[in-house]
Design a protein around this nucleic acid. Structure first.
Length: 449
DNA sequence: TCTGGGGTCCTAGGACCC
DNA sequence: TCTGGGGTCCTAGGACCC
């Protein structure tokens, strides 16, 4: 069984923790540049202010109803989020933080009959410890837990709802439209409707192979999940695969120095995040866009990409198994490129084995290294990243200076190949020129189950 | 005048190899 | 007129999520 815990109106609830006088008042919280409404209290939702609405379109409603407007404070929200997420550990070790305000919990250690009351108790405790109200959905799969959460928010006074496979579930599903299912939005919803599938129940009873053709393997998984067959396991996403820092400009920007200034800030922020999560960087991606809402202006967008795949003398390879053989292979590979490589044998009794790769590199003061022929950079040398970013920007803004362009936003995206940052475990796989990690084929998995 | 920012996964198609 | 087949890897783009 899974539970999905979701903080109610999270950003608004955070503000209320620090100013209880805000309770029961209509409140909205704004996006970075105060442009959009990204969180609403129930009172604000009742005024039909939609999620993501541009603030300037709702000025009147806001004034008329004395809606309180807050700029966002992500430091505060991040801190509150950690407090909530930490409190789950008191109840179960199986926690997947899904977003800033949501987490999946694995409930396999719980006695079936006790789950509901346990979750009810947890909800109370979380409120007591953090001041944040949450809703909890329980179900045999993640998708059903997600659905249960929706029901808990909407209909249950207790704020906790459990989905059990039964006739009753069929009735519930028949009242839910396909677009309300986690993973199905407008586009796929429209496709399903064309095939005569309008409700969650119809989707649950559809032929999975047909849905796969109609949508994709993602849709097929949803069908099984709705039937109560678990296709999505609990993940531990504590390292991001990519990091983005981007901002729209509040005012029109036409000159390169301003763009560069912004980019310099973004890259140092991104490197900070990279260091924080102890990752390495496999490449950089710089992009610019004009303001897409100014339909009459000439539109321009471009990206520049740099990947770090040229080995240097600073390359090290850590090998845990089959050191001699692998070393030979790598020697051949790198000598060919006239590159010096350091090999490290991580024998089981090697003290260095206890360090993770990031710590190891920090200790040895290495800022680049290679695993399985892929080169990575650590996040420390800001100046290097910054230099690469500026070059990329120069390469993509060739129309700059013509006076015809207005730049809407600029950002960077550091691609991080989490799965490749690993110590080589499986020498057999390497010897046979196969990758040491395997991807699961969903079709196979379905056949087995 | 003002229109968010940060993620994930999957697929199709091209390049390349034997 | 005929014009391998199968595999892998990479990337852009499209869909979805909060």
């Amino acid at each position: 069984m899974y539970a999905l815990v979701d903080c109610n109106n999270f950003y608004v609830s955070c503000e209320r923790v620090f100013d209880p006088s805000l309770n029961h008042k209509p409140i909205v919280v704004l996006s970075n540049n105060d442009g959009c409404i990204i969180a609403r209290s129930n009172e604000a939702k009742a005024l039909d202010i939609p999620m993501g609405a541009p603030l300037h379109l709702y000025k009147q409603v806001i004034q008329k109803n004395n809606v309180l407007v807050y700029s966002s404070n992500y430091t505060l929200y991040g801190d509150m989020s950690s407090r909530v997420m930490d409190s789950f550990n008191y109840f179960t070790p199986d926690v997947e933080v899904y977003s800033i305000d949501e987490a999946f919990l694995g409930l396999n250690g719980f006695e079936q009959d006790a789950i509901f009351s346990k979750m009810l108790y947890m909800k109370k405790k979380i409120y007591q410890w953090t001041g944040i109200p949450v809703s909890i959905g329980i179900g045999p799969t993640k998708t059903l837990a997600k659905l249960a959460n929706k029901i808990a928010k909407k209909y249950s006074r207790k704020g906790v709802y459990e989905v059990i496979i039964s006739d009753h579930l069929s009735q519930i599903l028949s009242d839910i439209s396909v677009e309300d299912i986690w993973g199905i939005s407008k586009g796929w919803g429209a496709r399903l409707r064309k095939s005569g599938i309008y409700t969650a129940l119809q989707l649950q009873r559809a032929n999975p192979c047909y849905i796969r053709k109609c949508i994709s393997v993602v849709g097929e998984r949803i069908v099984y999940e709705l039937k109560g067959i678990s296709m999505l396991r609990l993940g531990d996403i504590n390292r991001k695969k990519s990091i983005t820092v981007s901002r729209s400009f509040r005012v029109m920007v036409e000159d390169l120095p301003n763009l560069k200034q912004a980019l310099a800030n973004h890259i140092s922020r991104a490197a900070e995040k990279l260091r924080y999560q102890k990752s390495l960087c496999g490449g950089l991606y710089v992009f610019i866009n004009t303001n897409k809402f100014r339909k009459n202006d000439h539109q321009y967008r471009n990206v520049g990409i740099a990947t770090f795949d040229e080995p240097t003398n600073n390359t090290i390879v850590m090998i845990r198994k089959g050191f001699e053989v692998l070393q030979k292979i790598y020697r051949a590979k790198y000598n060919y490129k006239k590159i010096g490589v350091t090999f490290i044998d991580l024998k089981p009794n090697n003290e260095e084995l206890k360090l993770d790769s990031f710590e190891y590199k920090r200790m040895k003061n290495i800022d680049m290294y290679s695993i399985q022929g892929n080169l990575f950079k650590t996040g420390s040398p800001n100046a290097k990243f910054s230099g690469i970013c500026m070059q990329l920007l120069d390469s993509i803004n060739y129309k700059m200076g013509s006076g015809t362009l207005f730049y809407g936003s600029v950002g960077i995206n550091k691609k991080i190949e989490k799965n490749k940052i690993q110590i080589i475990e499986n020498s057999d796989a390497i010897l046979h020129n196969k990758s040491a990690s395997y991807t699961t084929n969903w079709t196979e998995l379905l056949r087995v189950s």
